[in-house]
């Protein structure tokens, strides 16, 4: 079903947009919004390959404005009146604070759940490089909302594991999940490379005393607040009323090897949680 339509003037030569060098075509596709990228993937083999390339997707993600993600569960009513089941839309949407608009990032439809029994079965655990780590009914998936590719991630097993963070490991182009498991004495920390099906325990085998102390405190507070990625490493802000250290997980060495003192002046004067440094010479505790 080959179809070639050209204006009369252009018929004299075979040049089409597909004949543009790949580097230029890639520059053009990078200018498109995520929805257009999705459609470009179904144009032809060459475009599909180009928009599947990790470097392309990363570059595209970095051009998108940073946006806050919100999750919703919407009741869209029943499709069948005989069945007394409501159909629910599970959505992740990005909020653009400039235009006050919501943009759909990921969405899937499921059946009703009994919200009196437990929390929403749908959770976004972490994000990294435009990828979302989310779960529905304890099944964990890594999803690229731009290409709508999904990958089942196991381990961790959400029945007994809690996800802490997602990061890309150095330049190995691997994504890894950091999580902990509650067993008896305290949490045990693991790393799993997405797609490997294997896990590796990183703690309590750690030699870092400060880390041990922090983990113990984290356990006491029974919460590891959400980390954020900064310069590729995972950072945790101090707990309210807890210790005054920012904890950094070095994603290359895979050790939470150092802690940073919080500079109070900065934290107090602008309460926007931004902190101070851009200096590679971090203060090691």
């Amino acid at each position: 079903m080959a179809e070639t339509v050209r204006l009369p003037e252009q018929r004299r030569r075979p040049l089409a947009v597909a004949n543009l060098p790949e580097e230029i075509l890639s520059e053009i596709l990078l200018l498109l919004p995520p929805k257009s990228i999705l459609w470009c993937r179904a144009v032809c083999k060459a475009w599909h390959a180009m928009t599947s390339d990790r470097a392309f997707l990363l570059a595209h993600h970095r051009r998108q404005p940073p946006q806050r993600l919100l999750t919703f569960v919407r009741d869209v009513g029943s499709h069948d009146d005989n069945l007394n089941l409501d159909v629910l839309d599970y959505c992740v949407e990005a909020v653009d604070f400039c235009t006050h608009q919501f943009r759909s990032v990921a969405r899937f439809t499921g059946q009703d759940y009994d919200c009196s029994l437990e929390d929403s079965p749908f959770t976004v655990h972490a994000s990294c490089d435009g990828l979302l780590l989310l779960s529905h009914n304890k099944y964990l998936h890594l999803c690229n909302p731009t290409t709508r590719q999904w990958l089942w991630v196991f381990p961790p097993a959400l029945q007994h594991d809690s996800v802490v963070g997602l990061y890309s490991h150095g330049h190995s182009s691997e994504y890894r999940v950091l999580y902990y498991r509650e067993i008896g004495l305290g949490p045990e920390f693991y790393i799993s490379t997405v797609g490997s099906g294997k896990e590796r325990s990183i703690w309590p085998h750690s030699s870092s005393a400060s880390l041990r102390k922090w983990l113990a405190k984290g356990k006491e507070a029974t919460q590891f607040n959400e980390p954020f990625l900064f310069h590729g490493n995972l950072h945790w802000l101090p707990h309210l009323g807890g210790q005054n250290k920012i904890v950094v997980f070095d994603t290359l060495d895979e050790e939470p090897s150092y802690q940073l003192d919080v500079i109070y002046g900065v934290m107090e004067s602008n309460r926007n949680r931004s902190y101070y440094h851009d200096d590679p010479e971090l203060q090691h505790a």
Partner: peptide
């Protein structure tokens, strides 16, 4: 897109 740019399917 295919029509606009003369891309073969």
């Amino acid at each position: 897109i295919r029509t606009a740019f003369g891309i073969e399917y």
